[in-house]
């Protein structure tokens, strides 16, 4: 899923400082699963913002709503009747949400309440980790399903580098060296030879480097 973290209240408060009537809009997709922009977090944010503004003596009306997915025009369209009732909308979806909203409602202003961080999952309750960088040409079949592009701090395709120590990456003792994992697994399985070749340089055109990407599925287009 797409993982995000809530922005600081200070930052959100400064985005909405001029408004007295806003909507905080959540999303039932990834951000609900990663506990950052679902029903509950929307209510918490709304409450915290109200408290802050009351404290300043500048009360604000905040309505809350959570839609199925902000990255889907079908659901975004459900806001048609209400979106105009506010001075601004704060979205708690990932970075995709505010954009679909902004494109659908030209006259409204949208602000993100979260920092969208990565594609990953929860490794244990309350802790999420990155797993994929969306490079557009997946190569993890060569690495037993482990991704060095997203998970090696240097995106090395031939690792581990000289900084790998006791299974941890040189950047921090909290970060695993994915190359240590890849190599160890290959060695355990007696398939080290898979790694002993010089790989062609990666074609980054399919990654963000090639410009904004688009996926077309002819059979589905209308």
């Amino acid at each position: 899923m797409i993982v995000a973290d809530r922005k600081s209240l200070e930052e959100i408060l400064s985005m909405i400082k001029d408004y007295k009537n806003i909507m905080v809009l959540g999303c039932k997709g990834c951000v609900t699963v990663c506990n950052v922009g679902g029903e509950k977090e929307v209510s918490i944010l709304a409450s915290a913002l109200r408290i802050a503004r009351q404290k300043e003596g500048r009360e604000i009306n905040i309505d809350t709503k959570v839609i199925e997915r902000q990255c889907d025009n079908e659901y975004v369209a459900q806001l048609k009747e209400t979106v105009g009732n506010y001075e601004a909308v704060v979205s708690m979806a990932c970075g995709v949400g505010p954009q679909f909203l902004s494109e659908a409602y030209r006259e409204q202003k949208f602000y993100p309440a979260v920092n969208t961080t990565f594609f990953g999952g929860a490794v244990t309750h309350g802790i999420w980790e990155e797993r994929c960088a969306g490079c557009g040409t997946c190569i993890i079949h060569d690495f037993d399903g482990l991704c060095p592009v997203a998970r090696c701090a240097k995106s090395l395709l031939h690792g581990p580098c000289g900084g790998s120590s006791k299974g941890k990456c040189e950047i921090s003792k909290e970060t695993i060296c994915i190359w240590d994992s890849i190599v160890s697994k290959k060695m355990e399985q007696g398939r080290l030879n898979d790694l002993l070749k010089v790989r062609a340089v990666k074609d980054w055109r399919t990654a963000r480097d090639g410009g904004p990407r688009r996926s077309i599925r002819e059979e589905l287009t209308q």
Partner: peptide, 14 residues
Amino acid sequence: FADPFEYRVYRLAN
């Protein structure tokens, strides 16, 4: 001296 030690000689070969 980096880890995993057993792999280092292979990396050199590479």
